[in-house]
Amino acid sequence: MTRPKPMGILMLNLMRYAGQAVVYGCMILVIGFFADTPTYRHLEPGMAQIKLAFVHSGKHKGGCRDRTAEELSKLARNMRRKKVCPRQRLPLLVELEIDGKSMYKGELPPTGFRGDGPSVAYKAFPVAAGKHKVAIHMRDSDRKEGFDYSSNTEVMLKSARHFVIQFRAEEGEFTFR
């Protein structure tokens, strides 16, 4: 076998380095491209989003009652709380209306293995940008008809606006942000 001449080796090495540069170029092209391309569209243009997001506990299922004096005396001093409530809570009934149309109506069950935790509302509704009438109603008691809390507002939503409906238990009212 004949040994390549020094000039041939030099050319071969140059060609190799050129080839490597091309491979490295292709590699950074792929990495540079997929590092931020293609753009992902999460929300269609001209759309906004109304989000229902709050945590609230329904009333205790079955209602509370006062302990009798006999019952209280059987308890340790530090445990003698007069009012006793069943552990389980009622589900929330929530209804959201947008422009007079019911967008959501459903029961939100209490969390926890024993159903003694708060109910969680977290739902998003894409709507077209523009003016909207929003009404929200919630029932947290065992009443059969109607709602315990209701609120409504009129809002002008720009494209991609994130409009959040929350509930403040302390004030007992919904807030719109």
Binding site: T37, Y40, L43, A48, R161, H162
Partner: peptide, 20 residues
């Protein structure tokens, strides 16, 4: 800006490909 929904996002597809 939490008052806005992120409509278009330039995802890093090496790490975030499952978000869609």
């Amino acid at each position: 800006d939490l008052t806005q929904v992120v409509a278009n996002v330039r995802l890093d597809w090496f790490y975030l490909a499952f978000y869609p």
